[in-house]
């Protein structure tokens, strides 16, 4: 039988281990808004102060990924703060973002066509504690670069979202999670026309958590589960 004292001790040790593994601040943070994804994460808390990696190959998938990232960043920016969005071109349309709860006037867009400059800017931005979130679209990310980004967020506590669009290979990186967002037919509740956005959210990798696939929609400012579907639990891969 485990006594309550021991339980508290184990919990404390677990959070210490999480901190060492670069999972950022987990304890005592509110989980509002991230509820559908809570099961997959250690301590049922969406990790902040880490780098999330997203991969997409199609322009339409990239748009869904942008929407999903905007929704996540919007939750982070709820208490104010500032967000940096580093893009290679002028593709993001600010008017489309308020729907996802992200006020576009709180975003500073930086156009960095050169990948080398973009990586430098991402790292500098992740080092700046005054920012809440940093969103970046980039083609390639090597392991060394991702490690540098991870070290930067461990010191500053900024949450990074790195979106790799059409990479040559899906190489392993030192980010805490890897996501892939695929658009699903929208749900309009039997009415004609296009309904609210729906995605298949694939959490392919997560440190200390359980990778999963959800089907969620975005309606009226929060994630809703798509009716008639089951969450798929992916097999967890362990480092050899």
């Amino acid at each position: 039988m485990v006594t309550p004292d021991k339980k508290a001790l184990i919990k404390q040790l677990q959070s210490q281990i999480n901190a060492m593994q670069g999972l950022g601040k987990l304890s005592g943070e509110s989980t509002d808004g991230f509820a559908p994804f809570a099961d997959a994460f250690p301590e049922r808390t969406f990790p902040k102060g880490v780098v999330h990696e997203f991969i997409s190959h199609e322009p339409a998938h990239a748009a869904s990924t942008h929407g999903f990232i905007a929704a996540l960043a919007g939750k982070l920016l709820k208490e104010g703060g500032l967000c940096l969005w580093i893009v290679p071109d002028q593709s993001i349309f600010a008017t489309g973002l308020p729907v996802f709860g992200l006020p576009p006037d709180r975003i500073v867009f930086i156009r960095a066509p050169k990948p080398k400059d973009a990586l430098w800017i991402i790292e500098e931005a992740l080092k700046c504690e005054a920012l809440t979130a940093v969103i970046a679209q980039i083609k390639e990310l090597g392991f060394t670069e991702s490690r540098r980004l991870q070290l930067a967020v461990e010191r500053s506590g900024v949450t990074g979202f790195v979106h790799r669009f059409q990479p040559f290979s899906e190489n392993a990186v030192a980010c805490t999670t890897r996501w892939r967002i695929v658009p699903l037919p929208s749900q309009s509740g039997g009415l004609p026309g296009v309904g609210h956005s729906c995605w298949e959210v694939q959490l392919l990798k997560v440190k200390n958590g359980r990778p999963r696939v959800w089907q969620v929609g975005w309606e009226a400012g929060c994630f809703v589960a798509v009716p008639n579907h089951t969450t798929i639990v992916l097999p967890q891969r362990h480092a050899v």
Binding site: L82, A94, V108, A125, E129, A130
Partner: peptide
């Protein structure tokens, strides 16, 4: 205001690195 200063300094560094006209915000 402390964090505003930090952000302003970060954006200055970015502008110094990439050249002018790359940092922007959008307003309706």
């Amino acid at each position: 205001s402390q964090s505003d200063k930090k952000v302003a300094e970060l954006l200055d560094r970015v502008t110094a690195k990439t050249g002018a006209g790359k940092v922007s915000r959008y307003l309706p």
